[in-house]
Amino acid sequence: MKLLIILNDPPYGTERSFNGLRMAHALAKNDPAAEITVFLMADAVVCAKAGQKTPDGYYNLEHMLGRVLSARGRVLMCGACMDARGLRAEDMVDGAARSTMDELAQATLTADRVLVF
């Protein structure tokens, strides 16, 4: 099954991106053959910023994205959203890829399920 998870919220301050990544991890765990794509839009592109330092015991979205990537998932980031926030590809976690709305459209059209957080 092809699954597309679209995140819109910043990594911290709300729990929507956190919950979306929890769902991505649970889906990968329950169906190892699933093809999971996480698309980061708007403030969610900051979730993929490398070098996040959170207090002990607090969730870290950079690490959670790493779990998606290690489960053979894809992490795509809206390029226009990155530009608006002054983020460069070298600022981001390894494995996350700069993307476009056209690529999001294609991922949407080929997905069996789309979840939006």
Rank of each mutant, 00 (worst) to 15 (best):
residue 83 D to G: 12
residue 104 L to R: 04
residue 48 A to G: 14
residue 68 V to P: 03
residue 89 A to V: 10
residue 112 D to W: 08
residue 117 F to W: 12
residue 114 V to W: 02
residue 75 V to C: 07
residue 40 L to S: 07
residue 45 V to M: 03
residue 97 A to M: 09
residue 97 A to E: 14
residue 35 E to H: 15
residue 50 A to D: 04
residue 69 L to Y: 07
residue 114 V to M: 02
residue 27 L to E: 14
residue 69 L to R: 03
residue 110 T to I: 09
residue 10 P to F: 09
residue 94 D to M: 10
residue 41 M to Y: 10
residue 87 L to A: 11
residue 5 I to G: 07
residue 12 Y to A: 00
residue 101 M to H: 14
residue 33 A to F: 12
residue 98 R to Y: 00
residue 91 D to F: 01
residue 75 V to L: 01
residue 7 L to Y: 05
residue 74 R to Q: 11
residue 85 R to E: 00
residue 55 P to N: 11
residue 26 A to P: 07
residue 63 H to T: 12
residue 65 L to P: 02
residue 25 H to S: 08
residue 103 E to M: 08
residue 116 V to R: 14
residue 89 A to Q: 14
residue 21 L to I: 01
residue 112 D to V: 09
residue 100 T to K: 04
residue 19 N to I: 02
residue 74 R to H: 12
residue 21 L to Q: 05
residue 94 D to A: 14
residue 70 S to T: 05
residue 108 T to C: 13
residue 86 G to W: 10
residue 6 I to K: 04
residue 68 V to L: 05
residue 14 T to P: 09
residue 70 S to L: 03
residue 59 Y to G: 12
residue 79 G to H: 13
residue 107 A to M: 00
residue 26 A to L: 13
residue 18 F to K: 01
residue 7 L to M: 09
residue 79 G to A: 15
residue 63 H to Y: 02
residue 81 C to G: 09
residue 96 A to W: 02
residue 103 E to S: 09
residue 21 L to M: 06
residue 34 A to K: 12
residue 67 R to T: 10
residue 16 R to T: 08
residue 77 M to A: 13
residue 95 G to D: 13
residue 102 D to F: 15
residue 84 A to K: 13
residue 1 M to G: 15
residue 109 L to K: 14
residue 17 S to I: 02
residue 48 A to M: 10
residue 6 I to Q: 04
residue 4 L to Y: 05
residue 20 G to D: 04
residue 97 A to S: 11
residue 32 P to T: 10
residue 59 Y to T: 11
residue 48 A to F: 13
residue 48 A to P: 14
residue 10 P to M: 00
residue 57 G to A: 09
residue 88 R to A: 15
residue 70 S to V: 01
residue 13 G to W: 05
residue 108 T to M: 14
residue 88 R to V: 11
residue 52 Q to C: 12
residue 26 A to S: 15
residue 99 S to G: 04
residue 39 F to W: 11
residue 21 L to A: 03
residue 61 L to D: 00
residue 80 A to T: 15
residue 41 M to L: 15
residue 59 Y to H: 15
residue 17 S to T: 09
residue 63 H to N: 11
residue 5 I to S: 00
residue 65 L to Q: 05
residue 109 L to T: 11
residue 53 K to W: 08
residue 18 F to C: 03
residue 86 G to Y: 12
residue 76 L to N: 13
residue 111 A to G: 12
residue 94 D to E: 15
residue 57 G to N: 06
residue 103 E to V: 09
residue 104 L to T: 04
residue 37 T to N: 11
residue 28 A to V: 08
residue 103 E to Y: 05
residue 74 R to A: 10
residue 72 R to G: 07
residue 95 G to T: 14
residue 93 V to A: 03
residue 32 P to G: 11
residue 66 G to M: 01
residue 59 Y to E: 10
residue 22 R to F: 00
residue 44 A to R: 00
residue 108 T to H: 13
residue 10 P to N: 05
residue 33 A to K: 15
residue 77 M to G: 08
residue 50 A to S: 07
residue 38 V to Q: 03
residue 21 L to H: 06
residue 69 L to V: 06
residue 82 M to D: 00
residue 59 Y to N: 12
residue 98 R to H: 03
residue 74 R to D: 02
